[in-house]
Design a protein around this nucleic acid. Structure first.
Length: 282
DNA sequence: CGTTACCTGAAA
DNA sequence: TTTCAGGTAACG
């Protein structure tokens, strides 16, 4: 479900409701305990109970709640996770799995149809940092950073962009959109991209993410923000989910292929197939 | 490096 | 009935 713009949209909604609040308790439904991946619910509960939430942050697609003892509560929504602020007296919706009870009578409620999401508590962010590359919207992520990430790689450029260790926060939608905007075929080997293509792709990735943020995320089926509101970036999508519809640039029908096991949307005219690509970095 | 599993519901 | 889903980890 959520990629960087969606997770950041949720973070922006959660922060004002959560920062400065103290966690009174944590509760789980029986299925909700699976969030913890084997960690005993009581252990987890004691790590959070009576802790004040100092700051709600984000790294890649992780939500990071810094606590007043400097521990972090770390959540990942995976495919269908939701995090919403609700009054404790509000009825629980379908697929409710767990909640943090706050000291103002509100709750941070977690819903997750497919139950892939994860919750964790850790004394620092070392484990998170170890599996994440740079933040693509920070100034440190430049065309040179991207050039280094593709250097010598035979993997498809789409797989490289989806690899969170190369760059953090991209997912299937924004990668397809960025590759189309940059006119790069998703199956192009990383090392085959020219300098100009790397520069276009770098700009396109940032533009796609910034656009998603401006529109409060992309809702295809599940995504809502911390208050249940859908994002409105879907109408901006130029390839994702548009298979068979005309390319908005050249009217060629948008194609759907599979890359790395993921549905992939592209324009075969705007994004020439690998064999026909010009430019080669050896 | 590519493929599969993890889950469940919605849509085709 | 079958296919598909915005993510990741664990396979071979």
């Amino acid at each position: 479900m959520p990629e960087l713009p969606e997770v950041e949209t949720i973070r922006r909604g959660l922060a004002p409701a959560a920062e400065g609040r103290t966690v009174r308790d944590v509760r789980f439904t029986p299925e909700g305990e699976r969030l913890l991946r084997g960690v005993p619910p009581n252990w987890f509960r004691e790590r959070l109970r009576c802790r004040r939430i100092e700051e709600v942050g984000r790294r890649g697609k992780y939500l990071l709640f810094r606590l007043d003892n400097s521990d972090y509560f770390i959540a990942h929504l995976r495919m269908t996770g939701r995090f919403e602020v609700e009054d404790a007296s509000a009825p629980e919706s379908n697929f409710f799995r767990a909640a943090l009870l706050l000291d103002d009578g509100r709750e941070l409620r977690w819903r997750d149809v497919r139950r892939f999401g994860t919750w964790d508590v850790a004394p620092n962010l070392d484990a998170i940092e170890a599996k994440l590359g740079p933040e693509p919207l920070e100034a440190g992520w430049t065309a040179a950073t991207l050039a280094a990430a593709v250097h010598g790689r035979s993997a498809p450029i789409k797989a490289i962009l989806l690899d969170q260790r190369r760059v953090a926060g991209l997912g299937n939608i924004y990668v397809d959109e960025a590759l189309h905007a940059a006119r790069v075929h998703p199956l192009r080997p990383g090392a085959s991209l020219s300098q100009a293509e790397v520069e276009r792709l770098h700009s396109a990735v940032r533009a796609a993410l910034l656009g998603g943020l401006e529109n409060f995320g992309t809702t295809l089926r599940d995504f809502v923000n911390a208050y249940g509101m859908e994002g409105r970036n879907r109408v901006m999508l130029r390839v994702y989910g548009r298979a068979g519809e005309p390319c908005l640039t050249c009217a060629t029908p948008i194609a759907r292929i599979v890359v790395g096991g993921r549905g992939t949307h592209l324009c075969l005219n705007c994004q020439p197939v690998p064999g026909a690509a010009a430019g080669r970095a050896s």
